[in-house]
Simulated assay, not measured.
Amino acid sequence: MEAFFLPVLSHFQNENFWTASAGRMRYQVTPEEENLAAEVWEGPWGYAFSTVEEKRYFPMTAQGLEELRAWGIAWAEQINARPPRTLEETLAMRAAALERKQAAQAAEEQE
């Protein structure tokens, strides 16, 4: 498996986000007030074309960053242990994710 990498804490304290991959797992970490919001999904698609499998918040501290790292490594192991998908399955996952996002956007516009 590819290494799970996170920048140093000051990267997030300076209000920078981080998006990367570890094998087939994709992840994004965004600073939100005093927390780090972390999201994971299975690739190969980027965030806009995927379904987030879990979003979790960690304190924006050195300990929180280590907890986030352990959580991310566990997710990477889980996602990368899955059997590879066919091209048809991958395209169907992308289409389903787009449909859900479009439906959510339409619902927001109606409110």
Rank of each mutant, 00 (worst) to 15 (best):
S10G: 04
S10T: 13
Q13S: 03
Q13N: 06
E15D: 13
E15N: 14
E15V: 04
N16Q: 10
N16I: 01
N16C: 07
F17N: 07
F17S: 15
W18D: 05
W18M: 05
S21D: 10
S21M: 10
S21R: 08
A22G: 13
A22R: 02
A22L: 04
G23F: 03
G23V: 05
M25Y: 00
M25F: 00
R26E: 06
R26T: 02
Y27N: 09
Q28T: 02
Q28I: 00
T30Y: 00
T30D: 11
P31T: 04
E32K: 09
E32Q: 07
E33I: 02
E33Q: 13
E33L: 09
E33C: 01
E34F: 06
E34C: 13
E34W: 02
E34V: 11
N35D: 15
L36M: 08
A37Q: 07
A38V: 12
A38N: 04
V40Y: 01
V40A: 08
V40R: 03
V40P: 03
W41H: 05
W41K: 04
E42P: 02
E42G: 09
G43V: 10
G43I: 10
P44T: 05
W45D: 15
W45P: 03
W45Y: 14
Y47E: 12
Y47T: 04
Y47K: 12
A48Q: 09
A48K: 07
S50T: 11
S50E: 12
T51P: 03
T51W: 00
V52M: 06
V52W: 00
V52T: 14
V52A: 12
E53H: 08
E53A: 15
E53W: 03
K55S: 15
K55M: 12
R56V: 14
R56C: 15
P59Y: 04
P59W: 00
M60R: 12
M60C: 15
M60V: 06
M60L: 15
Q63M: 12
G64I: 07
G64N: 11
E67Q: 14
L68I: 12
L68K: 05
A70S: 14
A70P: 03
A70M: 11
A70C: 13
W71E: 11
W71Y: 14
W71R: 12
G72L: 15
I73G: 05
W75P: 08
W75G: 08
A76D: 08
E77A: 05
Q78F: 07
N80K: 02
N80C: 09
N80T: 07
A81R: 10
A81K: 08
R82K: 11
R82L: 11
R82Y: 00
P83K: 08
P83S: 11
P83G: 03
R85G: 05
T86Y: 00
T86P: 12
T86C: 10
T86H: 01
L87E: 14
A92R: 04
A95E: 13
A95L: 08
A96P: 03
A96Q: 09
A97Y: 00
A97C: 07
L98S: 02
L98E: 09
L98N: 06
E99F: 02
R100N: 07
R100W: 00
R100Q: 13
R100T: 06
K101F: 00
Q102L: 14
A103Y: 00
A104H: 04
Q105K: 12
Q105S: 08
Q105T: 10
Q105P: 01
A106H: 01
A106Y: 00
A106K: 11
A106E: 13
A107N: 06
E108L: 15
E108P: 05
E108S: 14
E109Y: 01
E109W: 01
Q110K: 09
E111Q: 10
E111V: 09
